[in-house]
Design a binder for these strands. Structure first.
Ligand SMILES: [Mn+2]
Ligand SMILES: [Mn+2]
Ligand SMILES: [Zn+2]
Ligand SMILES: [Zn+2]
Lengths: 144, 144
DNA sequence: GTCTTAACTTAGAATAGTTCTAATTATCAC
DNA sequence: GTGATAATTAGAACTATTCTAAGTTAAGAC
């Protein structure tokens, strides 16, 4: 089992420390915002949400902190189309379903064996460190 | 069997016609450039290659034509990280392997049943129109 | 063949998203 | 506390892309 599978705000200080980084109010509130509403917000959206708690934060800091969280493996940067990067704090293996009618993105949990099956298609000489799966289509009802 | 699985320059005029669009020298040379070197170039890279044949073409036209080719389903726009969109004329079902040491992107053909297996993880209410699979890692030797 | 009209291309301006720079502020080790 | 280092900040700069408005080309009507 990989470490910090259940992401909590407390996990943050630990992860930062093991990377030789400091826990700061800005990093904490940004991580909290990501955990609170897991709708894959953009940096701008994170900025807007963070400002209600911390009105003096700068957009540059939001970018800096998001990048830090990604480097710590607490957050995934998600890019499946042209347009701003989105951020996802879900650390379980999961795919993304992009609902083209609503523009929203949903997490789809993946059974452990599926990623193995998918990776099995790689010819010899290809060594994959990660796999990303993205669906596009319509989701009827069921928002989360 | 889906139409125009084997992409040729000739397929272009047909596809454009059925979409009510014109075949133009710019569209032809851009599509030819994509077919000739299938390394998932960016719009800027396409622009540079096209200019050796057609020095007066504009970058705006390159963007316009690439978008047209994507709309005609002759080319896939590929986005798996922040940065410029890349373009792929491979119409077979395939995944992308992004080699992080070289920065290059390789096509990985997918067996027909794999996409079904992958789509089977979707809960009821999710109707996927397309699936994208991206690997990241190192490819030892074997460039194409 | 000319005319008409719509499609297409073009250069350059504008925009969006992100990164960089340089100055300030906060934190840590001692 | 002092000095060194890390982090934040505002704003400028940058990259990729889209928009605008003008010019060009080509298809269809006659
Ligand atoms: Mn969308
Ligand atoms: Mn890369
Ligand atoms: Zn996610
Ligand atoms: Zn491809």
């Amino acid at each position: 089992m990989s470490p910090a599978i259940s992401a909590t705000p407390d996990a943050l200080a630990q992860r930062l420390a093991t990377s030789g980084l400091r826990s700061t109010p800005q990093r904490e509130v940004i991580y909290g915002v990501l955990l609170k509403k897991r709708d894959h917000p953009t940096a701008d959206e994170v900025y807007a949400r963070v400002r209600t708690d911390m009105p003096t934060i700068s957009l540059a800091t939001v970018y800096n902190c998001l990048e830090t969280l990604v480097q710590c493996d607490l957050v995934r940067a998600v890019n499946f189309e042209r347009g701003p990067t989105r951020y996802c704090p879900n650390l379980r293996p999961h795919a993304h379903f992009h609902d083209e009618s609503s523009g929203s993105t949903h997490d789809i949990d993946l059974p452990a064996d599926l990623l193995e099956k998918v990776s099995a298609v790689l010819p010899p000489g290809y060594d994959a460190k990660s796999v990303e799966i993205t669906f596009r289509g319509r989701a009827t009802k069921n928002s989360s």
